[in-house]
């Protein structure tokens, strides 16, 4: 029998497990190798180069920010920055998720509410959140509330609309069926449809987190005393690429982990959702 399966090329490729792992790691290795080479070249020309710090310098940056008390504040900077940023991020996104979920769910099922709010939410979704950042800072102050409101306003309309669309896709038959099974109107909304939409909420939050990080870092860069974004823009003045790269890698790692946890959450808690989805 002729072997008609390739490992890599074409529509019918069937890479074995080990190859898939290898292929997944490959772009990372390429990136690191590329960086190290470039950094090495620059350092042979100029040992004081700041643009592409060496691994050792970055190691020192980690030691300095994560494991040494800051002289001025007496805090471990990386951890206290992470803590303040995550607090803002989670406060903003969970408020947006909770209210967007309830609103989208009810708008999807109640024609009255839908008529009243659909155009308004669509309008809100088109307001560029960063453009109203000054308004937020003026009205909510440059403290925590202003930043949380930015994240909230930046993600809430999209979450609402996505949940709304998911609810609208539920066949009318299912709602009729629930009524014939003795559900009250509230029962249809909160006991039949809501549990079906929950995994969709997690997916929407996963997608909105990218925007949430953007708004978080932007607001921290502009007015803040702490936070990951604040630190990055602070050390930029001293051209501390080593700290910046460490912070960016750290943010990426956090964002990736949150996404992973949410994704696993869907497969564990909602096994009926997307049964064929690839892990």
């Amino acid at each position: 029998m002729k072997k008609d399966k390739t490992w890599f090329r074409g529509l019918h490729a069937a890479p074995p497990h080990w190859l898939r792992l290898l292929l997944a790691i490959l772009p990372f290795m390429l990136l690191v190798a590329f960086y190290l080479t470039a950094s090495h070249i620059r350092h042979t020309e100029n040992p004081q180069d700041k643009l592409l710090p060496t691994i050792t310098k970055m190691g020192n940056a980690i030691k300095k920010t994560a494991f040494t008390e800051d002289k001025r504040t007496g805090k471990y900077l990386l951890w206290s920055d992470t803590f303040s940023s995550l607090k803002r991020l989670l406060a903003g996104i969970s408020m947006a998720a909770a209210s967007g979920f309830l609103l989208g769910l009810n708008m999807g099922l109640l024609p009255g509410l839908r008529s009243m709010l659909l155009a308004f939410i669509t309008f809100l979704a088109n307001v560029p959140p960063l453009a109203i950042l000054p308004i937020l800072f003026i009205s909510f102050g440059v403290g925590e509330l202003g930043k949380i409101m930015l994240i909230f306003l930046g993600t809430f309309p999209l979450i609402t609309r996505d949940i709304y669309l998911a609810v609208r896709k539920i066949p009318q038959n299912m709602i009729v069926k629930s009524l014939t099974l003795g559900a009250s109107q509230a029962g249809v909304i909160y006991r039949v449809i809501m549990p079906q939409i929950l995994p969709r909420l997690i997916e929407t939050v996963r997608l909105s987190l990218g925007a949430a990080w953007l708004f978080l870092i932007a607001s921290e860069a502009i007015a803040s005393q702490s936070g990951l974004g604040y630190r990055i823009f602070l050390v930029r003045r001293y051209l501390s690429m080593d700290v910046i790269i460490v912070y960016v890698a750290w943010i990426t790692l956090i964002a990736f982990s949150i996404d992973l946890i949410l994704r696993k959450c869907i497969t564990w808690v909602f096994p009926w959702y997307n049964p064929k989805m690839e892990r």
Binding site: T180, V192, Q196, W272
Partner: peptide, 15 residues
Amino acid sequence: PERGIVYQRYSLFPH
């Protein structure tokens, strides 16, 4: 509830 229904499809709750 006086009237039960069985449709051709979408009859069950997937969750």
